[in-house]
Design a protein around this nucleic acid. Structure first.
Lengths: 197, 197
DNA sequence: CCCCGATGTATCGAGACGATACATCGGGGT
DNA sequence: ACCCCGATGTATCGTCTCGATACATCGGGG
């Protein structure tokens, strides 16, 4: 999850941890971000696994006067994706199982990197997500029908708002799916199957 | 958080862990629940802290024939709130700081137990939550305005959907706040300050 | 009679989080 | 000239949560 997002961002350009976090917040839709307490251990793990490399400059290198345009980033650690990292990213990008659209933020990250994702994979993920949210909606509907009159006004209100939210998400996903389908018909003829690396 | 929810549920009646989890899911609005891997350690912590007690019956007690209405729950562990637990719950219920309405599910749990919450505390929590979500909305708005044309169609779509979601939440909160205000004017005259236990 | 699904309790490792501690830079105020 | 402050930047700690997994028992249907 975090791994996916880090690989995706470093796939575009090398970055500091700090910058990574900011980009992550943007890409995640502005709401949820990630804490440094998660980010740095993840970077350490991924570095140990060979997925990313560090451009660690000599911390004692004296900058000569010919480098004023540097915006303040001195001897800090720059991370870059490795060949193994790109390979891993492509593996992850091609996954279409429940881990790609279940709850817990994975869907948001997957969507954020749809630019790197094949059209048929995009469609499968969107449809899987829609199935997930639809089943949540049905559960919520029946729960609301059962508990109506039996619970707190506030609990009821919470459930009502939740139901409307998942309802909106289903409609949103349906729009995205329709758009994908239309695009698939217009331009490219079929484009089935992910390119075999 | 989990502690709050458990205390709130056990405040109503003693329960098994399993039942606790089901009730929790209902009270949380049907979507998010809690895993046993969180629940049982939490119960253990709270038991150690003296907030809850276990009604642990003798597992070798032979049930005589005069107890057929039992629905299958034999020698399992029933948890009940203690006096300290009730005290702690009332402390938590009276909190109106950011921990009561910041992200991370605490607001949902607080709302679920508004029945136990004084009217002025309810209002402060709803307003705090609205402020939080409003600032998220502003951040998202400016982010959208800045990054429009510079990012992926999918990222844009994600941000747009997120913005509409927080927008809807603000409107929902405003309705709840209006309702609280109207109710405060109609019935009770002031009702400031929590009833001192 | 046996198996299966619901009920029920419990633990493990992986990982995320908030708090916290550093250190450096640029700039604004006095 | 000085100093403080906020942004940038890296890192760790303890605590909590999660998903997976392993049990065991009950009632009911084949």
């Amino acid at each position: 999850m975090l791994e996916f997002a880090i690989l995706g961002l470093l796939h575009q350009s090398p970055m500091h941890g700090y910058e990574l976090r900011k980009q992550l917040a943007q890409v995640l839709g502005g709401l949820r971000s990630i804490s440094f307490g998660s980010l740095y251990p993840a970077l350490k793990r991924m570095h140990a696994a060979g997925l990313i490399g560090t451009d660690e400059p000599d911390p004692h290198a004296l900058l000569p006067a010919d480098a004023p345009p540097l915006t303040g980033r001195r001897g800090k650690v720059v991370y870059a994706i490795t060949a193994e990292g790109k390979e891993r990213f492509h593996e992850l990008v091609c996954q279409t199982g429940p881990e790609a659209y279940d709850d817990g933020g994975s869907f948001g990250v997957r969507l954020a990197f749809f630019g790197h994702t094949a059209a048929d994979v995009r469609l499968r993920i969107l449809e899987g997500r829609r199935r997930t949210v639809e089943s949540q909606r049905e559960g919520l509907r029946s729960s609301l029908a059962r508990t109506r009159e039996r619970v707190d006004r506030y609990t009821l209100e919470l459930q009502r708002h939740g139901l409307e939210s998942v309802d909106r998400e289903v409609r949103w996903l349906s729009e995205l799916i329709d758009h994908e389908r239309r695009e698939a018909q217009n331009g490219r003829p079929a484009q089935l199957g992910a390119p075999p690396e």
